[in-house]
Design a protein around this nucleic acid. Structure first.
Lengths: 150, 150
DNA sequence: GGCAAATATTTTGATAATCAAAATATATAG
DNA sequence: CTATATATTTTGATTATCAAAATATTTGCC
């Protein structure tokens, strides 16, 4: 039992580190080598469809709006997203992805999907189901011990 | 299939983020609230027993030695580690944990173990085994597509 | 034995990501 | 129509990071 726990822990730590490195590396090698992981995640948070407000994005990323403002400035300059003031409430700024932003989104999404595919490889449907349930439980458990912003 | 993959992916992303937040939060609340996660990881890389050279630590953390130098400077100032020149080769700097450093190490280790214990608690042995298998596969997949330092 | 090349580390000068608090602009409620 | 609330940006700071230059020491070789 103790042994298995240690293995799971070191798996988690290794996976955590590797994902970081690989995500970084993949971006640097790819077609969009002028953006960082952090920036990809900002693009991810804006989302493929329609637009999001600054507040929504900042909340999703769990960063302050000040941080987000500068991040969005740079991503606009690089051609990945655009800003527009809401017509109904001029305080609100809507951010949406450009063509280039959407392409970057899709490529990053593929990276993630390939990762999941690798996990599922050789799993029977039952195993798949069990894994999913396990992850749901783990996720819920983590949410229980800590809820962001609280 | 596609649906299930998407759910697994978003579970993984959420879990990843939550672990980050929880780790950060736990440190801020605890007895060693003058250090960051990054600093805890530096302490972790120095290790409980004996000492490590700057090169070894930098390689383990995958950061440059310049970055490490400043990190170690700060951790020494805060009383978590110490430096000493090797007697056999005066170019080499050995870094080791102080009592305080070792205590921080143990507390962080306990945090990890508690987390794994919490995860496993809700799992049946069958789920546990499948989760472990999934993690092993993911780990292998990540190693296959990228080997650090190459 | 002494100099050139290699090795280990630190210093320097720069950038990215982040925050809290102040400033700005707009909306809403009484 | 004014005071308060809300959404965002600006300001001033800190931390983590890198690459390249500088420093100190060791090793290899004539």
């Amino acid at each position: 039992m103790e042994e298995k726990m240690k293995e799971i822990n070191s798996m988690l730590v290794e996976i955590y580190d590797d994902i970081n490195h690989i995500e970084e590396y993949t971006i640097k090698q790819g077609a969009f080598n002028d953006i960082s992981i952090t920036e990809i995640h900002t693009i991810e948070a804006v989302g493929m469809y329609g637009s999001k407000t600054m507040s929504e994005i900042a909340q999703a990323l769990d960063i302050t709006m000040g941080t987000l403002t500068t991040a969005v400035d740079k991503l606009i300059k690089k051609g990945y997203m655009e800003r527009s003031r809401s017509n109904t409430d001029r305080r609100i700024v809507n951010v949406s992805l450009t063509k280039r932003g959407k392409l970057a989104y899709r490529i990053h999404e593929k990276f993630h999907m390939d990762m999941v595919r690798a996990i599922m490889k050789d799993f029977t449907p039952e195993e798949e189901e069990i894994l999913l349930q396990g992850l749901r439980k783990l996720n819920q458990h983590l949410k229980d011990i800590y809820t962001p912003g609280k």
